[in-house]
Amino acid sequence: MKTTVIIFPGSNRDRDMIAAITKISGHVPKTVWHTETELSSTDLVIIPGGFSYGDYLRSGAIAARSPIMDALSNAATQGIPIIGVCNGFQILTEAGLLPGALMRNAGLTFVCREVKLEITNANTQFSSRYGQGEIIRCPVAHHDGNYFADEAVLKKLEDNSQVVFRYAEGTNPNGSINDIAGIINEQGNVLGMMPHPENLIEDAHTGDDGRRLFESALGLVA
């Protein structure tokens, strides 16, 4: 299983992601710097959280125009699984690989806490180890996580069951429309989510609800 983590100037959850993947899969992921132009053979690409380019212009906007993004876009077209967490989700929407946009949190403050997520589509390669409708714990830490899409896009997302994770009732931390916490693209191989599953994978994290996401994506037996 070959995994790749893309790193941008200002990424800061890359080490958490590398540690999680290494612990879960037994393999150390390859890291690729944003100025590179190729993603050599890989089975899974991850864009970690952080504040690429200091969130200048808009969160993820500058990173989404980095040299590596053409290769990422090609990988997406080829059906290679891609996960963007937090800033990674922002970058994927800015790059047009996922629909919608992530705006300033409705409460205007940075939120760093645990939320509950409902698995609203367990029939994806990223969520197959969860039960449909299952409620899991997951940490969030962001300032711009307020998911927005216009009515037409939203209808399409809902009709196609592209909403994979929703903030469970009463835990929406940022005002996201339809309580959306994570979505996949139409093809089903690109996932973006604001919460951090990599920060809840073992006892030291007080739980491992995030672990099954990686087990699903890595095709590991639970």
Partner: peptide
């Protein structure tokens, strides 16, 4: 179109 605005929002 390409950078300064995010035309989704």
């Amino acid at each position: 179109e390409k950078l300064l605005a995010n035309t989704v929002i």
